[in-house]
Design a protein around this nucleic acid. Sequence first.
DNA 1: CTGGATCCTGTAAGATACTG
DNA 2: CAGTATCTTACAGGATCCAG
Lengths: 114, 114
Amino acid sequence: MKDFRHEHRLYYSPVEFAMAHLGGTWKIPILLSLRHGPVRYGDLKERIPHISHKMLNTQLRELEKKGMITRTLYREKPPRVEYALTAKAQRALPILDQLTAYGEYLMAAAGVGG
Amino acid sequence: MKDFRHEHRLYYSPVEFAMAHLGGTWKIPILLSLRHGPVRYGDLKERIPHISHKMLNTQLRELEKKGMITRTLYREKPPRVEYALTAKAQRALPILDQLTAYGEYLMAAAGVGG
DNA sequence: CTGGATCCTGTAAGATACTG
DNA sequence: CAGTATCTTACAGGATCCAG
């Protein structure tokens, strides 16, 4: 596999490119929280325990920029904003489910979380 | 999902636990390089472009500690060390293949790497 | 309600040089 | 050949305050 650049960053493999879209602490929880349809900012914040204000915003901006989610502003008062998965992100859902299952397997193997 | 601790670290979900075993820049390339059988340190270093001496060692130690790989020392001269996947890690291979495929899809969607 | 800006800390990760 | 130690830089992520 040949290296390639994208948005000023160097990648070494397709997996690394995929991880740039899914990796880190928060991207997967956010994507999973959107799997059943659009969710607004405040609800997202409630659904994802421990996420800080800043990280939720940062990650939403990144996911939007990468074309994984859409942002829709409804000009009401107070304003409402809804986030939703794009087709690109929906294609990742089966993998995320497998990652969840694998994580549960690892937890059992490590004897935690029971 | 209830939070849990493991090895002094706090996790919020099974996915996050799985990502601790697979995430970062180098763990997946290392695991994929071991998929067809044991590989020695030097060969591993050659097979994984751009990885530094230090990162290879650090990640190998981490993977070993997490029970994802085994380390076998052969007391020859010069000494030989072989790394191999454990059953736990082998269970991740299908997911890594899907991540590769998804990465290729994302690359095509982004118009890179062709 | 939604979002941005700033400051601060811990960890990831590269470069380099050294050891059995 | 395989591995360690040290130094340094970049970024992830938290706390807090400000704004449309």
